[in-house]
Amino acid sequence: MIEVRDLRREFTRTRKLGRFRRERTRVVAVDGVDLAVAAGEAVGYVGPNGAGKSTTIKVLTGVLVPTAGHVRVCGVDPARQRRELARRIGVVFGQRSQLWWDLPLAESFDLLRAVYRVPAADYARRRAECVELLELGPFLATPVRQLSLGQRMRGEITAALLHGPELLVLDEPTIGLDLESKERLREFLAELHTSRGTTVLLTTHDLDDIERLCPRLVVIDRGRVLADGPLDALRAEVSPERVLVVDLERPPAAPLDDLPGVVSVRAELGGLRQHLSFRRADTTAAALIAAVAGRAAVHDLSVEEPEIDEVVRRLYARR
């Protein structure tokens, strides 16, 4: 679906030195990015501000011409066949609106239908689906400028889906939304991905979006890909240790640090709560639980994975 090899995009920045003298410097926004996304995948594309995420997306949608590199989206060259590609992909920019500001939401949909030349039956079906799932009904007749951010965002997502795109590109779709709106949007997108098989490329700073929607994570920083792989594998790679937290009926007779696979132990509440760090390569949570239960009566337990934020932080730190 997406095929990017050695993508490079530079910008020229001009700085005034004197009245007439100008110094031109080249800024490299994207520096040799490789990315391959198969049909039906959902990929999270994350990186700090200025990492080159939006530039990549602008290149993928054909808005920016790459300085160098090979780019194919849906089998076409975005910069050369921008209009053809536009009919086959949906794009949502969380910080920009693609709706007509002063017209009612429903009229924006009708306009987009004409612009994308969507057959009447397909349009009616897709629109009805979105109206139902995203609960757009109450504000279809409201001018876009009067919508709340959450309402507008649901409208934006619908607008990107009316022409039945094969690929949905979401650039920070949950930015600025409250928890409930975020959750509702994620639910809808997850449903869209699993039931309809739409390929999704998502950039976000809210890593919960990724956790919910994207099995695969691509991390980029300073224009280069830092890591690319299944979220679980990246997690295992950057933080090989997991933590088993056990609450015991009474403090153990002997310290638990001699259990097989345990790397370190931290005790709390006078020994009633034990944090056991272990390497996933050495033992499993189940084996460790059994070993602990053999030494003391277990009241409660949980296994802690590093938070996705922590994973990404460590990936950045690794560069």
Binding site: V63, R82, E84, R87, F93, R96, Q98, V115
Partner: peptide, 17 residues
């Protein structure tokens, strides 16, 4: 503002639109 990015990825000719 950069909103023009939205106008540029539409399947239309911007000037004609």
């Amino acid at each position: 503002t950069g909103d023009v990015v939205v106008d540029l990825y539409r399947p239309w000719h911007l000037q004609a639109a």
